[in-house]
Design a protein around this nucleic acid. Structure first.
Length: 199
DNA sequence: TCTGCGATAATA
DNA sequence: ATTATCGCAGAC
């Protein structure tokens, strides 16, 4: 079992300032790190593409909820879903574009004890972060983190590159849980990883 | 292992 | 009414 402090180079602003579909693939195998020692490797993502994407929260323009997603790249867009869950995205592109990447699953790396405490319903470690709302629970992410800057890390979270490259052949599929734009294969995951939300 | 369904509340 | 979900129950 991997233990110890997650190390690596913080992803710069420029990493996020491009098409969300590119960022979604590039984020695979990067590491989401919290200041309290919890961390996990990103193994599943989905791109949301603003005005060209009827499934995106930003498709119909700016509202109070999606304001962060229209803001600067490298910030975290956190939204409340199904009346009980939080999900988080990395904002991409330029200000006003409204594009982002939903983080759907992590492979837990450090701080497993804290994650288990945060998710008593998870009976196996592979259930800790294998879903967009599961990973926010495990990492301690909620609405108070909407808008935090992942580059400066001042909000308590950052994303780092620990030297692990994205998979040579990421798997792409249709996105999960949407009813529109279902034909777009804008979900990607690391093949073979047990933490992916649906295998 | 898989499938169906209820919980629960903001959003538009 | 819909929703970028989860976890339980019941079937196999």
């Amino acid at each position: 079992m991997m233990c110890g402090i997650a190390r690596g180079k913080v992803l710069p602003r420029a990493f996020y300032r491009r098409d969300s579909r590119e960022v979604a693939v590039a984020l695979l195998n990067k590491v989401l790190v919290g200041t309290d020692g919890r961390s996990g490797r990103i193994v599943e993502t989905e791109a949301y593409c603003g005005p060209i994407d009827p499934a995106a929260h930003t498709y119909r323009g700016k509202t109070a909820r999606n304001a962060t997603m229209f803001g600067p790249a490298g910030h975290l867009y956190v939204y409340f879903s199904y009346g009980m869950h939080w999900c988080c995205n990395t904002v991409c592109g330029e200000v006003g574009e409204g594009i982002a990447v939903l983080l759907r699953a992590l492979a837990p790396l450090t701080g497993l004890e804290a994650m288990r405490r945060a998710r008593p319903k998870a009976h196996r470690d592979r259930d800790l972060c294998s879903g967009p709302a599961r990973l926010t629970q495990a990492m301690g992410i909620s609405g108070v983190h909407d808008g935090i800057d992942l580059v400066t890390g001042k909000g308590g979270f950052r994303i780092v590159d620990d030297g692990t490259p994205p998979p040579r052949e990421p798997v792409s599929t249709g996105r999960i849980g949407i009813s529109r734009a279902t034909g777009e294969a804008w979900r990607w995951y690391v093949p073979g990883d047990v933490n992916v939300s649906r295998r």
